Amino acid sequence: RPMNAFMVWARIHRPALAKANPAANNAEISVQLGLEWNKLSEEQKKPYYDEAQKIKE
């Protein structure tokens, strides 16, 4: 299954978030990633939607 825009973004940002929160488990990191993603504007998300579309094609 191809990655969606959030997954493209999260793949880039997960390592830094995990390093900054070494005690957090994957579920907690995923929740935090979701919160951070939701704070982004549509303009900030656009490159990730574009990349996800390329992956689908």
Rank of each mutant, 00 (worst) to 15 (best):
A18E: 14
D50N: 08
A10C: 13
P2D: 15
P2N: 14
K39V: 05
P22N: 04
V31S: 07
W37M: 00
A24C: 07
L35I: 13
E51Q: 12
Q53A: 13
S30F: 14
K45M: 03
P47T: 04
N38H: 08
D50W: 08
E42P: 12
I29T: 02
R11D: 14
V31N: 08
N21K: 04
K54L: 09
K45T: 02
L33W: 01
I12N: 05
R1I: 13
R11N: 11
A23K: 13
K46D: 02
Q32E: 05
K56E: 11
V8Y: 10
F6V: 01
E51L: 15
W37V: 00
Q53E: 11
K45A: 02
K54C: 08
E42F: 14
E43Q: 10
I55D: 06
N38Y: 07
I55H: 08
K45V: 03
V8H: 06
Y49H: 07
N26D: 15
Q53W: 05
I12S: 06
A23N: 14
N21V: 03
P15V: 10
N26C: 13
E43K: 10
I29E: 01
F6L: 02
A52I: 07
R14K: 08
K39P: 00
Q32S: 05
E28S: 06
P22D: 03
R11Q: 14
V8L: 15
Q32H: 05
A10K: 03
I12Y: 09
A20E: 06
M7F: 11
K19V: 06
A24Q: 04
E36T: 07
A27F: 13
F6A: 01
S41Q: 03
Q53D: 10
I29M: 03
K45P: 00
N4K: 05
Y49V: 06
I55A: 08
K54I: 07
M3Y: 11
F6G: 00
P2Q: 14
E57K: 08
I12V: 09
L17G: 01
N26K: 12
A20Y: 04
E57I: 11
N26I: 08
Y49S: 04
E51V: 12
N26L: 10
K19Y: 05
Q44T: 04
A23R: 13
K45Y: 01
A16C: 13
H13D: 00
P22G: 03
K56V: 10
G34I: 15
M3C: 15
Y48K: 00
I55F: 09
L40W: 02
R14T: 04
P2A: 13
P2T: 13
P22A: 04
L35F: 08
F6S: 00
A20H: 05
E42G: 06
K56Q: 13
L17K: 02
Q44R: 05
E43Y: 08
M7D: 15
M7Y: 12
E57C: 10
E57P: 07
E51W: 13
K56I: 12
M7E: 15
Y49E: 07
A16W: 08
A52C: 06
L35G: 03
A5D: 01
E42D: 13
